[in-house]
Design a protein around this nucleic acid. Sequence first.
DNA 1: GTCTATATTCCGATAGAC
DNA 2: GTCTATCGGAATATAGAC
Lengths: 212, 212
Amino acid sequence: MGYNWQKDTRLEIIVHADTMIRKKGFNAFSYSDISTIMDIRNAAIHYYFPTKSSLGRAVMQEEMLRLTSFRRRHALAAIGGEDQLKHLVAAFYYNARAHAICLMGALTPEFATFDEEMQATVRRLCTAIQEWVADCLEEARTAGKLRFEGSAEDRAALVISALLASLLLSRIEGTELFERMLDRMLEDLGADWRVRQLEKPEPGTHIYYSFT
Amino acid sequence: MGYNWQKDTRLEIIVHADTMIRKKGFNAFSYSDISTIMDIRNAAIHYYFPTKSSLGRAVMQEEMLRLTSFRRRHALAAIGGEDQLKHLVAAFYYNARAHAICLMGALTPEFATFDEEMQATVRRLCTAIQEWVADCLEEARTAGKLRFEGSAEDRAALVISALLASLLLSRIEGTELFERMLDRMLEDLGADWRVRQLEKPEPGTHIYYSFT
DNA sequence: GTCTATATTCCGATAGAC
DNA sequence: GTCTATCGGAATATAGAC
């Protein structure tokens, strides 16, 4: 997994903050939400993260690290874009079943309320994810695994939109919506696989299930 | 227009609340945001809306009224589904240029923080919009104006996803992203029109530009 | 590193005058 | 219907002991 879970308070705070952001939103979650779960005081969180903005940025930087690590590992193993996309969809499917939304879906609506440093970090995270998905799509199209019209960048934006919004909507209307939406999109892309065929880890067994 | 703008304090509060929800999110905006703009006291808002939840529900009910009114008028005038979708895309294009996001994109991420009454209202609003877009798509497909595979309901969810997410992302990355994403989707649908050809009211001239 | 204690600010909400 | 005044609570953040 790459993480040292035993007694890494800083990382544990980040993990819980990540969870709370995806559950309640950045502005709605509080230091108490985290300190209660971890059975520490709010002041201990401030020791690691002097401001809430610094905590938010740390959550995003951790996600960036996971993405970078994911890309490096899969590039070295020569794993194609389509298989990487399978992992992405599987991760979102897991989140849909856990009633969790993604970081982009949680943070971009509140963008206007963030300070400049956090806004810049949000922008970097969004760009990195879009670039990754675009690269995967382009590679998969060249390899004949997927088929679509237009630039890979525009298509990536549409794929990400479907993933992001499906989490927002399936939390309200049920996981079946996620399956129908994504299967529809996969068929459009000419993929020979469907959502239900992907590995489905049980919700609750992992805190992190995004890129790792 | 259908609204009496002069001295309808209740409605004016709703309009500003709508704007603030789309700008900062429901949890991040405060009674002071509205009372300052209107130059009244917070207590005056509490007279019309005893709780914040009641204000949030009023904002959504107003949007529901606009949608219902829109559908009735366009049905009576025998305006086809494709033309109704043109209006929807134009409204979102306007919002993208005004750096505003839509109600669904603003409210669904915070869904878990709402009380039961507000959650139910969010659910109703999402369902009504999805039904409308699905009906438009089905009618347009039957009329030979648009072409797509699968059920109109699933396709509507994908269309709404693209619209919703394009507002979230174009506020961060620029309006060009909205144009590229939506034009890409319109071409997929076999539409003979593009975003830039739609009527583009100048930002700031209307507070409401959704369904009316 | 984590604690107690507290400063400060802001929020939603209510009471009661006018 | 709108105001002033205020309550009770919660939030972020800081100071200083251990």
